[in-house]
Design a protein around this nucleic acid. Structure first.
Length: 294
DNA sequence: TATACGTGGTG
DNA sequence: TCACCAAGTAT
């Protein structure tokens, strides 16, 4: 257990550090709309900042409002998604735009439960939008924040694999009472995890929390067990799906089956991947043997 | 709770 | 080289 006094000491230190060290990211600039924030948050789900920035500018220039995106075809969103990965996010963002236009008069909702009800918006993204677009006080817990909290507060080498209720409670206890300041601290915790308290080789020498980091103070012990993860992308259905969708993305119109057949040798796996794309609504088949983006 | 879901950079 | 990692969500 950590005393309230100690928990209260993190926020001002992190806030001050952030004020002097925050990266100048496009979606953080004054004038960014809640829609711009939402688009950035979805794009940043599992995709690094450097790859998101150009796509974000293109999207916001082309679809400055939810209504603008909702009026376009979902396939255009998928095409404009480019190579950000996990293209179902583009589809969900389009569904989001439709929902916001139909249910919320074209205004990105500010109420947490209403944000959570949007397609593709989960625990993290809903709180991020509420905090960063609307200045509300919510724990915004992503992989960076969980790592910072695990190390600095709990003294553990790393965080667990997924966000738990305990994570939200812990981070909430670190936030100052005043909503706009709490939102700033939330951004600061994420930034610290993204550029200083990084996963592989943390830069403890420049960390503002070094003197109160329980993990560092205890000697920065390495993680214990073999943290296995089922990875390896080559040869997976995901890779095949990616290749199939790339053909459709780069085509201006529908393509014949032959064009898709050319991207992967194993017919069984290829058909399975294509069936999955159809199932997910990422691909449609307007006529037998013809495929297109929705 | 475990698994599926893209893509590219890096130590 | 290759396993790990990057602002998660849905099922």
């Amino acid at each position: 257990m950590t005393s309230p006094d100690v928990l209260d000491s993190y926020a001002p230190v992190v806030a001050e550090w952030y004020s002097a060290n925050a990266r100048d990211l496009p979606w953080r600039r004054a004038g960014t709309t809640p829609w711009g924030v939402l688009v950035s948050e979805v794009m940043l789900q599992q995709t690094p900042v450097v790859r998101v920035a150009p796509a974000w500018h293109e999207w916001l220039a082309r679809w400055p409002t939810p209504a603008a995106l909702a009026a376009d075809q979902p396939g255009e969103a998928i095409r404009a998604w480019g190579r950000l990965g996990y293209p179902r996010r583009a589809l969900r963002l389009h569904e989001c735009a439709v929902a916001i236009t139909e249910r919320h008069g074209g205004v990105v909702p500010s109420v947490l439960d209403e944000l959570l009800a949007l397609p593709g918006v989960g625990t993290y993204t809903a709180r991020a939008v509420a905090a960063f677009a609307y200045g509300q006080r919510h724990p915004v817990v992503d992989t960076n924040v969980r790592r910072v909290a695990a190390r600095a507060v709990l003294g553990e080498p790393d965080a667990g694999p997924t966000t738990t209720a305990a994570d939200l409670t812990l981070v909430e206890s670190l936030l100052p009472l005043e909503p706009p300041l709490a939102a700033l601290v939330s951004a600061a915790l994420m930034e610290l995890g993204a550029v200083v308290c990084v996963a592989r080789t943390p830069r403890c020498g420049v960390c503002p929390l070094a003197e109160r980091c329980r993990w560092l103070i205890s000697g920065a012990p390495a993680p214990v067990g073999p943290t296995r993860r089922p990875q390896t992308y080559a040869g997976t259905d995901r890779q095949v799906r990616g290749k199939l969708l790339a053909v459709l993305r780069e085509s201006h119109g529908p393509v014949a089956k032959d064009a898709l057949d050319a991207v992967w040798g194993d017919q069984v796996q290829r058909e399975r991947a294509l069936a999955g794309l159809l199932e997910d609504g990422l691909v449609v088949t307007p006529a037998p043997g013809i495929y297109a983006l929705p």
